[in-house]
Design a protein around this nucleic acid. Structure first.
Length: 276
DNA sequence: AAGTGGGCCTGAGAGC
DNA sequence: TGCTCTCAGGCCCACT
């Protein structure tokens, strides 16, 4: 399940492999993604150069010719990159395959189709649409404890959900929110308006730390960019609480077990003793 | 306005 | 073994 560190890994892999390259053509196996793929996508992107690849939150934006293509990996999305098209092995859920003029190839695979690939301007999906309401990047200096505190101190919703709200901070997902709250020692059930400035500071610091560690772990997988799926970076990182309900709290002097609860339909993992 | 919950989708894993 | 059921997750959107 790609979160910001995995998306960053994918973006890096694409940059190394196809930035500056020209698209020879593409094959679309499915048009009925969550946002429909335009029928003329191939015409519009063929023979166009990939000028720039950037990331905003969990979205990757590719400036191709005069178009802006927006890619989101959802939860099962991957980009597989091949230096030579002859190395490509088709998979069942490869929805869009990009063939490059230099002989390379990359494929957007997404079994659960929670992801998206669309061109800016189509059907009102302006390139800025997902971004206009989006909060700061969690790793930017702009995202400080003060900024975070001001964004949440009148909100009654649980802090867990507020951290998942991309309008407050863009790029945190369920896993890293659980980890950051554990690191900060804050109970995920508490309302935003109960969080002190000092606690907001801690949450912000911890968020940045868990993301930076995960990016560092994922970065090592970039050497083999044919496997640019982010999965190695994700699995190499050992989680303290995520998906560990029933296990002992990692803190040696704590005797509690990690609990799993459901908040707004999403799993939350936390230590009832360490997180107040 | 803010908060909640359903829908989307498939594969993995549990339980029978 | 093989079936059925449940769950996972980000995001959008409808509803309160």
């Amino acid at each position: 399940m790609p979160e910001l560190p995995e998306v960053e890994t994918v973006k890096g892999g694409l940059e190394r492999a196809v930035l500056g390259g020209r698209i020879k053509g593409l094959r679309v196996n499915r048009y009925d993604l969550r946002i429909p793929v335009p029928q003329d996508l191939g015409q519009r992107l063929s023979a166009q150069t990939i000028h720039e690849i950037s990331r905003r939150g969990k979205y990757i934006i590719m400036h191709i010719g005069d178009s802006y293509a927006v890619l989101h990996l959802g939860m099962s999305g991957r980009i597989r990159i091949f230096a030579a098209a002859s190395d490509y092995e088709a998979r069942k859920h490869d929805h869009i395959i990009f063939e490059m003029e230099d002989g390379g190839l990359f494929a957007f695979e997404d079994p659960r189709r929670f992801g998206m690939f669309y061109l800016a301007g189509d059907d009102g999906w302006a390139v800025e649409r997902p971004f206009s309401q989006m909060g700061p990047e969690p790793l930017d200096d702009e995202w400080t404890g003060t900024h975070f505190y001001n964004a949440i101190n009148k909100r009654k919703a649980p802090i867990k959900g507020l951290l998942l709200d991309q309008a407050i901070v863009a790029g945190l997902g369920n896993i890293y929110v659980c980890e950051a709250l554990y690191g900060a020692g804050v109970d995920p059930r508490r309302g935003g308006d109960s969080i002190s400035k000092a606690e907001a500071d801690k949450i912000v610091v911890q968020s940045k730390q868990v993301l930076e560690r995960a990016i560092a772990a994922g970065g090592s997988t970039l050497r083999d960019y044919q496997k640019t799926d982010g999965s190695l970076g994700y699995f190499q990182y050992g989680f303290q609480v995520y998906d560990r309900d029933g296990h002992d709290c990692p803190l040696a002097e704590c005797n509690q077990k990690i609990l799993r609860i459901v908040q707004a339909g999403r799993s939350t993992f936390y230590c009832p003793s360490c997180q107040k």
